[in-house]
Amino acid sequence: MTLTTDTRSALSRSSRPLRFAHVVIVGKYHAPGARHAVDEIAHFLHDEGCDVSLEQETAANTGLHQYPALDVAAIGKACDLALVVGGDGTMLGIGRQLARYGVPLVGINQGRLGFITDIPFDCYRETLRPMLRGEFTEDARALMAATVWRDGHCVFEATALNDVVVNRGGVASMIELRVEVDGHFVANQRADGLIIASPTGSTAYALSAGGPLLHPGIDGFVMVPIAPHTLSNRPVVIPAQSEIALEIVSGRDASANFDMQSLTSLLHGDRIVVRRSEHALRLLHPVGWSYFDTLRKKLHWNEGG
């Protein structure tokens, strides 16, 4: 039998040693079909020669107990790669926790948009096979470290990959925020709120509020007012090395959200301080991945040309 060039190339790739020997799967376990998807991918990884574990909540909620169940600390210590099966929310949740351990992550999209879970489920096999053997593009994403200060004491802290959002409560009135950058007064802004977003988060809430798209390679954050009282209050891009401080001057029932996954209530005089985290998320993409391909597909831009 004569092998074609493509067949020889495929055999050569599959015979290469594994770059990632121990892979953990993190699943969107409450979604319909999640158990089947996680089980199918686990079998695929096993057939490729990987040791396979499940994140402990994924294991508990899917009932797949034939694989070791690991908490975040154990994943950080033992695993070479985390495979996230779900949507961007699933990636945000586990990504913030694993960033401190330097574990790289790959996203398989079972959600709706999938800006950072960018491998379609229906082609994960042919995409993951070369990635497991070292054929990938690495993409470092900045995180934000946020703290809330009250009467000189830190009362809340969180890490955010997408955004930190300070907004008003359910009452129909604005809040007023004193905004400082690196200790310099910027303005007192009256608005429904203010978003501080990373390049990753620039395609999320910040985009819907009129903010710009920031390429992941840009070392900066963007401040985007939500429905400002003064229409000249526009989005501003800030160097990522800066410290941004917001003080609650007036307004009722204000709160701070971090990636829309954790929340704390705010009082008058509270200060929310946001700076770049010392950790970064390591995202892996297939060879040939392009940020602009992602934007074009997910935002339904004209695909001509």
Rank of each mutant, 00 (worst) to 15 (best):
Tyr124Thr: 00
Asp293Gln: 13
Ser232Val: 04
Asn167Glu: 15
Gly217Ser: 15
Ala74Asn: 08
Gln110Asn: 10
Phe44Arg: 02
Leu54Ser: 12
Pro235Cys: 04
Arg178Met: 08
Gly220Arg: 05
Leu281Glu: 10
Val224Arg: 03
Met91Thr: 01
Ala59Lys: 05
Phe44Thr: 04
Pro212Glu: 06
Thr127Trp: 08
Thr2Trp: 09
Met91Ala: 10
Asp163Ala: 10
Pro104Asn: 09
Asp151Arg: 01
Arg100Met: 10
Ala42Asp: 02
Gln261Ile: 11
Arg276His: 03
Val224Tyr: 03
Asp219Arg: 14
Arg96Cys: 10
Gly95Pro: 02
Leu105Ile: 04
Gly134Ser: 04
Ala204Arg: 04
Phe258Lys: 08
Val165Gly: 06
Ile108Cys: 02
Tyr101Glu: 05
His36Lys: 12
Cys123Ser: 07
Gly102Lys: 12
Gly288His: 09
Lys28Tyr: 06
Ile119Glu: 09
Phe258Gln: 05
Ser250Lys: 08
Asp293Asn: 15
Thr264Ile: 03
His65Ser: 13
Glu243Lys: 15
Ala31Glu: 15
Asp219Gly: 08
Ala99His: 07
Leu263Trp: 08
His215Phe: 04
Phe20Asp: 02
Asn188Leu: 11
Asp293Met: 07
Phe156Ile: 00
Ile41Gly: 00
Phe156Cys: 00
Pro68Thr: 08
Lys77Ser: 14
Asn257Arg: 13
Gly111Leu: 07
Glu48Asp: 06
Glu278Trp: 03
Gln241Cys: 03
Asp139Gln: 15
Arg13Tyr: 00
Ile41Ser: 01
Leu70Glu: 05
Val222Asn: 09
Cys79Gln: 15
Thr117Gln: 09
Thr230Met: 09
Asp270Trp: 00
Asn162Ala: 11
Pro199Cys: 06
Gly211Phe: 05
Ala146Trp: 08
Gln261Lys: 10
Pro104Asp: 05
Thr264Val: 08
Asp182Pro: 07
Gly89Thr: 04
Asp80Asn: 14
Ile75Pro: 04
Arg35Asp: 00
Ala21Gln: 14
Ala59Gln: 11
Ser255Lys: 14
Ala59Val: 04
Leu83Val: 02
Pro17Asp: 09
Asn109Ala: 13
Val166Thr: 11
Pro212Ala: 14
Ser232Leu: 08
Phe185Ala: 13
Pro225Asn: 07
Asp163Pro: 05
Gly305Ser: 09
Leu128Asp: 01
Glu176Asn: 14
Asp219Gln: 15
Leu194Ile: 12
Val179Arg: 03
Ser265Glu: 05
Trp289Ile: 02
Leu283Gln: 10
Gly102Asp: 08
Pro104Lys: 11
Gly210Leu: 06
Ser9Trp: 08
Ile116Pro: 01
Leu105Pro: 00
Arg112Ile: 00
Gly217His: 12
Asp151Tyr: 00
Leu132Tyr: 02
Gly93Val: 01
